[in-house]
């Protein structure tokens, strides 16, 4: 049960990352590699602030803000400087590696001695559940710490989803969606595509930074290597989400992305339990995304060939 709750909590934290990836990858049609750096940036900024004695909420928000600044940098490179968008992300991601080392002062900051959001959630949980260490949840024994962290993250992710959903239905939000969907059209309607893209990337990486700040507090440390493979992970969640909800409306896709992230984390937890070598995880994730990307095209071609054979017959 601890394993399940842990996997769910991690899945929800990474859902915030996946939502960020959804914004850049699906809404702006841009696989933004900044994510690999900005998740670490969010984590390291939050960790550095926590260690220097700042409040957990302030530190988390600062992590998110730092992430959005990284996205802003990528956006400026890709629009004002006319650098290829993919390359812009790679440049910022690479630069961030050094930035992150400077922010943390070393390659790893443990957070065991400071009061993190996880600790705050635990304290609140203890008060709510009457000071028990373990409680009985429909026949399972669950530690209050795990349960409170899970509920806290669930609340936060719900809030993020609602905010995103309403934002993308506002005048500004619809203009941003149209910027990704048809730049020519939105330009003819008086919206600067450059500004829209910069704003979108800042927003995407703000979410990713937030996810990084949460992740560091959940796992108890920030590490300069923690961003590796995060873009592919996010894309995998987005794709699973799309398959789960099978719809193109924004609300369902947001929910789908969260579900995709949680489901993916559960599958990974089960696979690891069955003895999957953790070293193979990234390879399997990459293969999964590859298959999911080529599948629709492959299916269409097979179908076309099938039709041709039928016609010939």
């Amino acid at each position: 049960m601890t394993l399940l709750i842990g996997a769910l909590t991690l899945g929800l934290i990474l859902a915030v990352l996946s939502l960020g990836v959804y914004v850049s990858f699906r809404i702006f049609n841009m696989p933004d590699l900044t994510a690999e750096g900005s998740i670490t940036l969010g984590a390291s900024v939050a960790a550095a602030l926590l260690v220097s004695g700042h409040n957990a909420f302030v530190s988390t928000l600062a992590g998110a803000f730092a992430g959005s600044m990284a996205g802003l940098a990528t956006g400026l490179l890709a629009t004002k400087c006319r650098v290829n968008p993919l390359l812009s992300g790679i440049l910022v991601m690479t630069g961030l590696y050094s930035v992150n080392l400077h922010v943390m002062g070393k390659s790893n900051i443990p957070l065991l001695e400071v009061t993190t959001l996880a600790d705050l959630a635990e304290r609140l949980g203890e008060r709510i559940f009457g000071g028990e260490v373990n409680i009985n949840l429909v026949g399972w024994t669950v530690s209050v710490r795990d349960l409170s962290m899970f509920l806290g993250v669930l609340l936060l992710v719900t809030a993020v989803c609602l905010l995103l959903y309403f934002f993308f239905r506002t005048e500004v939000g619809t203009a941003l969606r149209a910027t990704g969907d048809n730049p020519q059209m939105i330009c003819a309607l008086g919206v600067s595509v450059d500004t829209g893209t910069i704003f979108g990337l800042a927003m995407s990486n703000g979410l990713i930074g937030l996810s990084g700040a949460l992740l560091a507090q959940f796992q108890g440390f920030a590490d300069v290597q923690m961003g590796i493979g995060m873009v592919v992970l996010g894309i995998a969640s987005v794709i699973i989400g799309e398959a789960l909800v099978g719809s193109r409306t924004i609300g369902l896709l947001i929910v789908g992305t969260v579900m995709g992230s949680v489901l993916f984390r559960l599958l990974v937890a089960i696979a690891l339990r069955w003895g999957l070598n953790p070293n193979d995880l990234k390879l399997i994730t990459a293969l999964f995304v590859f298959v999911a990307l080529v599948m629709p095209d492959l299916a269409r071609r097979l179908k076309m060939r099938g039709n041709r054979i039928e016609e010939a017959a």
Binding site: E171, A175, I186, G190
Partner: peptide, 20 residues
């Protein structure tokens, strides 16, 4: 509806009100 709502604010400022 969303496409038309975008056109209804062509060249004007866009705020945080519901588009449609």
């Amino acid at each position: 509806a969303e496409n038309l709502a975008l056109a209804a604010r062509r060249g004007r400022s866009r705020g945080l009100g519901l588009a449609v």
